[in-house]
Write a protein that binds this DNA or RNA. Structure first.
Lengths: 239, 239
DNA sequence: ATTTAAAAAATTGTCGACAATAATACTTAG
DNA sequence: CTAAGTATTATTGTCGACAATTTTTTAAAT
């Protein structure tokens, strides 16, 4: 259950632990998208009281994985194509700005560290060519490093603490781990170069293009899946 | 206690009501920035149990007005100059994108409604020249309309549901209601024109400049306050 | 007098029970 | 048989009490 998320600190309280478990279950699709959540049932399943379950639910709501209505209950968010589009538009805005800030605020050490990471990824790409998991992990590592490099707590919290859980959920549910490996790698390299040049304006533009390309890639894949097996994914479209 | 916030729906549960009260108290500075929150004390003050108070605290945490550490407690966020800068940088990214989306997605009706609103503000500006409250309210109305016009639920939730509470807090605490009235009005007019022209790119640029200008305005005001009465605001600087 | 260790107090986290609200099943009228 | 209204059931919201942890106070030793 490696999330790699740098803002997710070690769970100390039991509510935190259960939160992580449910979060994982939702992201991986074990609890289906759109499902109504029964507090008594979940409390029993995780062997905790309803109070601490509700505490966990609050965290889940905070990272937009569930939605609550007063006096009615919670449901897991619905993965729709519009939702995916909105999420990536938001990412484009936030990560673009984070990248600009990274170009301005990253220390030289941080930059060289990121360059080394890229080099390591390049070697790994050659070694384990086609192995999806490492690609995806490398992709996440890169984005996290840039975001943290912005040194902007507000941006870091919003992107890593909230949006990225949803991003991972969409990736999992739409079977989109490890997208367009080699292409993305080059884009990463260009972004790092802009950051190293302290060119914030260019860095922002490149990051925005990078995310937009990633979005279009997912959109295409979904469109293709719809044409090939029309049945299975119909609920995704009309939801 | 008019917040004008379009995402804040009518409080039905008592936890919601208390949340709104404490929120107001924090934003207006009645509960001082940086204060440690005592759950037993607050529960007694608002005549509710600790459980429902904790529910309210969760909402406050969600809009970044308090910060919690496990097994230690909550404190009201600290208003620092760096925090203000980070907040406005984030706004620049999010509202800029929202404005671009508004140019693409707003209906013609929404646009003409916004134009009428601007006209009304212009008249009000002539009538009650110098009256701060109306200015600020008009400013908020404008921004909310643009954000909602993006038709992007993710953006709307992030900006209106989370960031704007912090924005209002900073405005109150630093005594920055009604900033640079006439200047802002012209900027609003230009932004609306870009939206009406369906020029998303220009709309985004103008909104980003508008927010950046607002940020610099506040920074200047703070800098001036520091030089004039050096004592009173020292805690703002070093925090 | 200062620092360390232990004890006491206070605070947060968790639990089970009750109250208020919403969803479901049933009854009755048309 | 359908539909509306009522009664029942289930779910969520709220409460007070106990457990676990942290902070403060007190005591002792260097």
């Amino acid at each position: 259950m490696k999330t790699n998320n740098p803002t997710q600190q070690a769970a100390v309280t039991t509510a935190d632990k259960v939160f992580e478990q449910i979060q994982h279950a939702i992201v991986e699709g074990e609890i289906e998208s759109g499902t109504k959540i029964s507090e008594p049932e979940l409390a029993k399943r995780y062997q905790i009281s309803r109070s601490t379950l509700r505490e966990a639910l609050n965290r889940l709501e905070k990272c937009h994985l569930i939605e609550r209505k007063p006096n009615v209950g919670s449901r897991v968010v619905n993965c729709s194509i519009e939702g995916l589009l909105e999420l990536y538009i938001t990412r484009e805005a936030l990560e673009g700005m984070a990248c600009r800030q990274a170009a301005e605020n990253m220390t030289d050490d941080e930059i060289s560290h990121m360059q080394e990471m890229l080099k390591a990824h390049a070697e790994m790409q050659e070694l384990k060519d086609g192995v999806a998991y490492y690609q995806e992990e490398g992709n996440l590592d890169f984005h996290y490093k840039v975001i943290l490099g912005s040194h902007n707590k507000q941006l870091i919290e919003l992107i890593c603490g909230q949006l990225y859980h949803l991003v991972r959920m969409y990736r999992c549910q739409f079977g989109m781990n490890s997208p367009r490996a080699s292409r993305a790698f080059d884009e990463h390299a260009n972004i790092i170069r802009a950051i190293a040049d302290r060119d914030g304006e260019l860095a922002e533009i490149l990051m925005r293009r990078h995310i937009a390309a990633s979005r279009k890639n997912i959109e295409n894949k979904i469109a293709k899946e719809i044409t090939t097996n029309g049945q299975k994914n119909i609920q995704l479209i009309k939801s």
